[in-house]
Design a protein around this nucleic acid. Structure first.
Lengths: 128, 128
DNA sequence: CTTGACCTTGACGCGATGTCAAGGTGCAAG
DNA sequence: CTTGCACCTTGACATCGCGTCAAGGTCAAG
């Protein structure tokens, strides 16, 4: 399977497949005589795993750890759980921070006439 | 005032002050004979404005627009309000996306024994 | 004059991805 | 066989906001 087909099958762009290979997240792909990368079902499976982990907010480093645990038949599920909980906590922190900013902005906007007059509590707040 | 003092007074790092100047977000600073940048109270005021806007989640482009409105005596507060509401909406979207990921992870973790056994619903989910 | 704090520019790093360029490969139709 | 198009290769540059380090100039106090 060429890289384009693997990309379509896995949901990971060609660009990122090459990138993940370069940074060592995935092993170097097999090559045909032409130099084209050649992927099998296992490779696509691994790429889908990565895509799913990314969709859940894991970073590259964590995904590396997850991949190692995934391929370790004797792994302890506790390690995976710990990674997931740590990520969940971090995501919660970020989500709260963003929600806080949003609320502040909505608060400021509520007190702003929003008409043609120049007076604006939003800008006042930014000045402080 | 040297750049270090301006950084301390405004809460914007030296690095970012130079950066904002290079990308044109702020006008080039005055220079002493030595080549040192020289800042006045107005400059610090503007930098604080930028720091506050950043803390509220505005991006560089939006801050540029806010700065223009800020220095426009005849501005319409409606324009500022529109920027704030657009940013608030975007922040809300991101916050929700992160919270969604967090909830999914907590859900998966809840169903994971988290002991020494290898069986793990989290990894199962990542495989799909 | 020396020392140490401060300034200058420039470059490289992160994280994850897009995009563009210049060139080679594979395959099907003419 | 040739032509053309889709696909592949590597590499470089852009994004966004910031850290950090390096090599050198400046300033002020001792």
């Amino acid at each position: 399977m060429n890289i384009g087909a693997a990309a379509r099958a896995s949901g990971v762009s060609e660009r990122m497949i090459r990138h993940y290979e370069k940074i060592g997240l995935i092993p170097p792909a097999a090559r045909r005589d032409s130099g084209y990368r050649d992927y099998g079902d296992d490779d696509v499976h691994r790429l889908r795993f990565i895509a799913n982990a990314r969709d859940l907010g894991f970073g590259i480093g964590e995904i590396g750890a997850l991949l190692a645990l995934w391929s370790d038949r004797g792994r302890a599920s506790g390690e995976v759980k710990a990674l997931a909980l740590a990520r969940a906590e971090e995501l919660g922190r970020k989500a709260q921070a963003l929600a806080q900013m949003r609320d502040t902005l909505l608060d400021l906007a509520r007190n702003c006439h929003g008409d043609d007059r120049p007076e604006c509590p939003i800008l006042k707040r930014l000045e402080d």
